[in-house]
Design a protein around this nucleic acid. Structure first.
Lengths: 339, 339
DNA sequence: TCGTTTCATGAAAACGTTTCCAGCGTGTCA
DNA sequence: TGACACGCTGGAAACGTTTTCATGAAACGA
């Protein structure tokens, strides 16, 4: 690869100083039109592409932002990154991305890596926002960041999310309204996910409100969509739940597949609802009833808030965006009560 | 945000020169153990995080790689990025990511942006690898890059992909073997996608081979998953196709939804097959028959090849990875012939 | 004791920018 | 005609690293 042209090459070719090249190309100072033309011509001929390392070093702004998520394979994260990206591009920012693979232990190292590139700020989704050592470190150093999906309860941290508890309560209440009395939950591991915990809290709240005892709660590993083992037995006995609330859509899809394989019809035998609102849910038949989070908009909002912080605005309180309940064929009336 | 510690601060605190700090922290030269300890202590106390802009500027290597894809919302791209990312992380590389939103016109600008950050190489998926001006420019400048999903036919460009033509032929042949005689195709716009074109070629090849006339071929815009309009009429007449090959899975999912809404049963009335092998396909009921591309492995392979190039290896010929046919409930025997 | 080798360390240059400051030529006004 | 302002331009420093080169001390064999 041929050596890339530097500002010095451009200056030499245009017969001016590098200071002039810089001024012309950055367009800040109205320069002599003929000089400007010479510079621009030289830059074009040499295919000059300003080195952002040099620039960043000098002006101490990189116009790069770091994004950390658990995994790109979950559309809910991919979509939020899409939103972040779109907003960033509009504002002239580039995006450096990292993933933890759902491993909270890796959060710190990945963030360190992003920071070493001197990203101006971070948009992150962590396993557990209240217990995250990485976030604590960010707070200590005053690095601007914005959470997405996480909504800390104990700590006050900048976040864009939906109210997980309220949303879960709404879904479960909808189940109750449809006559369901034995409602179970399939959840990502509570220890590994604040969202899962919060959604469980909403689940319990709705049941309490209605005076119903909780059905079985099954915790599964995040990335383990193959629901084997004890799963079937909890869902097939005579006192089996007639509705299942899943802490996220990926889980819900897996559950629907498993139920199908167990010979249970959805929603005739058992209803299912998810959480997230990934696009595929609505393409399924029956379509997946779920809480729709505005993933893309959340990403965009997070970026905008971050940008405001970078421009000197004071830290804003957490932003809860409205969720919507997507009615779907997977959630139907409870089967008529057995005698 | 407090000013970040520089190597100079560490040197001052440890009572040594910056050269020594650099040497100790990079661990290249075996230094005096006591000095090293002092340096490490100082670095830790100051939470020193080497500035990769300075480093990159000096050594002219950034250990950053650029990734350009059409969109993160398509799992097939998100998954390949996941693979790239994982491999990059293992090799100590960071990933700068950009998306075109399926707009070929934006490819060049996004690549320019990535290059201005002095990424060492690029992994890209473009709309049309043979006609891409952006790729031509990369070739001209000798920038190392690797294509994923694109497999150029007219030009010789480094790529990791599956043989789209062969794969499409296999699917369509499978349809024929199941007794289908009127087979249609739903495709992304040929002008905007080399893959769509190649898969169409495979479709035609299989039909020719069997001496069958092609059924209707419907081109739709890439991101337009709402198949309205003339769609229904082409698929409902008396001479309607009994099987539909879709140029990608997203399209196939939309088609399945539309067919369902038209009152057609899958696969009893009409069979459907896709292309890509996104995970959700197998969760559907009926599950989606499709060509599975090893998305993650393709991303990993692309990174490995790129890394080899960066380490001085000569350009390798395009790598075609094996695809597999995933049998799914959406593809069944042709309905018994009407009298 | 001296020359030589080895080892640890520091000074300084360089990477590619931006920007401050000074200098120069030209035009304007008294 | 002189003083001054103004517009453009160039020199040079600085950003935070790495690395070359030189220096000094200690160790060693003769």
């Amino acid at each position: 690869m041929a050596r890339l042209a530097t500002i010095r090459d451009v200056a030499a070719r245009a017969g001016v100083s590098i200071a002039t090249v810089s001024r012309v190309l950055n367009g800040d100072v109205p320069a002599n039109p003929v000089t400007a033309a010479k510079v621009r011509a030289a830059a074009a001929e040499l295919e000059f592409r300003p080195n952002r390392l040099g620039r960043g070093l000098k002006i101490a702004r990189t116009r790069v932002l770091g994004v950390l998520i658990p995994s790109l394979s979950n559309p809910v994260f991919a979509d939020s990154v899409g939103g972040i990206q779109a907003a960033a591009r509009r504002a002239g920012y580039s995006v450096l991305i990292a993933a933890t693979g759902y491993d909270a232990e890796r959060e710190d190292a990945e963030i360190e890596s992003l920071l070493s590139h001197r990203v101006e700020g971070l948009v992150v989704t962590v396993a557990d926002a209240d217990r995250s050592a990485a976030l604590a470190k960010l707070d200590r150093s005053g690095t601007p960041y914005e959470l997405v999906y996480n909504l800390p309860e104990a700590t006050c941290r900048p976040a864009v999310a939906v109210d997980n508890i309220a949303a879960a309560r709404v879904v479960v209440s909808a189940m109750i309204a449809l006559g369901h009395r034995r409602i179970g939950m399939i959840a990502g591991r509570f220890l590994a996910s604040d969202r899962s915990r919060q959604r469980h809290a909403g689940f319990m709240a709705a049941l309490n409100e209605a005076g119903l005892p909780p059905g079985p709660v099954i915790e599964v590993a995040f990335d383990d969509l193959r629901l084997g083992g004890g799963f079937g037995s909890a869902l097939t006995g005579s006192g089996r739940p007639t509705a299942l609330f899943c802490s996220n859509d990926l889980l819900a899809l897996a559950v629907m597949g498993a139920l199908h394989d167990l010979g249970l019809r959805i929603p005739d035998d058992v209803s299912v609802a998810g959480f997230d609102g990934i696009g595929f849910g609505s393409l399924l038949r029956p379509s997946l009833a779920t809480v729709v989070q505005p993933a893309r908009a959340m990403g965009e909002a997070a970026f905008e808030r971050l940008l405001a912080r970078l421009d000197g605005a004071p830290p804003a309180p957490p932003l809860t965006l409205p969720f919507t309940l997507r009615h779907g064929g997977s959630l139907g009336p409870a089967p008529s009560p057995q005698p």
